[in-house]
């Protein structure tokens, strides 16, 4: 690894300075992330497993958990297909407007989730949206229904797969693909047998990160869901509702489950990543 060689070459003096920096960083992260995160776990288990038993036997909560998983999985599938495809186009092909598209694809990362929700309502809202009334007349309700929640989730997680796959595609280059073409493989065979295996890790990171982001989306989903109990309510909305209704145990338990999945996703990525860079 590159950094160990640097460390080995760095002069041994100035140990105190190094220790001060290390202490500052550790303390900062401890107070900002580690300790609060630990307390959520402790609060969730404050009554032993009672809080968990309570939420897992509440049909509204289990329905919300199921809905969260379904929405996240659908959103991840859409974003993976779209993300890998658009990454191939951005890296391998030239077309007018490529630079603008490349920049705009990052937009969802810097747009407020509330603005995302508002934007979707303005277009797909059943009452005065641009397309909403027409779609609803044809029987498709989007806002205050699951399709809108999927769209909001897809929107906020859109760039994650692309940002992981594009650098890998650039790094791999197109020589292997050319070799496959010269050996008689058509475009699809080349993609499936050569390109996909070589960008596999990038796609997996992207999927894991998208999954974490999709499971945890709150603001955008809140705006478009209407938050109908037992119908369009997701896990993150349950946390808010439980907390505001003074069911802190339920809020902490649900939050703990969500945090567990998020941390597991990060650990999966951090365990996989060095393996590939070896």
């Amino acid at each position: 690894m590159a950094d160990s060689s640097i460390a080995a070459r760095t002069p041994v003096g100035r140990r105190p300075a190094r220790h001060v920096l290390r202490a500052v960083v550790v303390a900062y992260l401890f107070f900002l992330v580690a300790w609060p995160l630990y307390l959520v776990g402790r609060n969730a288990f404050a009554d032993g497993l009672a809080s968990f038993r309570a939420i897992l036997t509440d049909p509204d909560v289990t329905h919300a958990l199921q809905l969260t998983v379904v929405i996240a999985v659908v959103a991840v599938v859409i974003n993976t297909v779209f993300g890998v495809g658009i990454s191939m186009l951005l890296v391998r092909y030239d077309f007018p407007g490529k630079r603008a598209l490349n920049a705009l694809l990052d937009m969802p990362l810097s747009v407020s989730p509330i603005v995302v929700g508002l934007a979707l309502i303005l277009v797909y809202g059943g009452r005065d949206g641009w397309f909403g009334p027409t779609l609803e007349a044809a029987g498709f309700q989007i806002i205050f229904a699951v399709p809108g929640m999927v769209m909001a989730t897809v929107f906020v997680a859109l760039p994650l797969v692309i940002r992981e796959v594009v650098p890998v595609l650039q790094e791999v280059g197109d020589e292997q693909e050319q070799a496959a073409r010269s050996l008689g493989a058509n475009a699809w065979q080349t993609f499936r047998r050569i390109t996909l295996p070589s960008i596999k890790w990038g796609v997996i990171y992207g999927v894991v990160l998208s999954l974490a982001r999709s499971l945890g989306e709150f603001g955008a989903v809140k705006v478009v869901s209407g938050n109908v109990l037992g119908d369009t309510r997701t896990a993150t909305l349950v946390v808010e509702e439980k907390y505001l209704n003074f069911d802190k145990g339920g809020a902490y338990a649900t939050a703990f489950l969500l945090a567990l999945v998020a941390v597991a996703c990060i650990i999966v990525v951090s365990v996989l990543r060095p393996k590939e860079e070896r």
């Binding site: 992330v33 959520v40 989730p113 990160l209 974490a212 982001r213 499971l215 945890g216 989306e217 709150f218 603001g219 896990a235 993150t236 909305l237 946390v239 808010e240 939050a255 969500l258 945090a259 998020a262 941390v263 996703c265 990060i266």
Partner: peptide, 8 residues
């Protein structure tokens, strides 16, 4: 903080 749901 990146992966954690914001409400959490």
């Amino acid at each position: 903080p990146f992966a954690l749901p914001t409400i959490v």
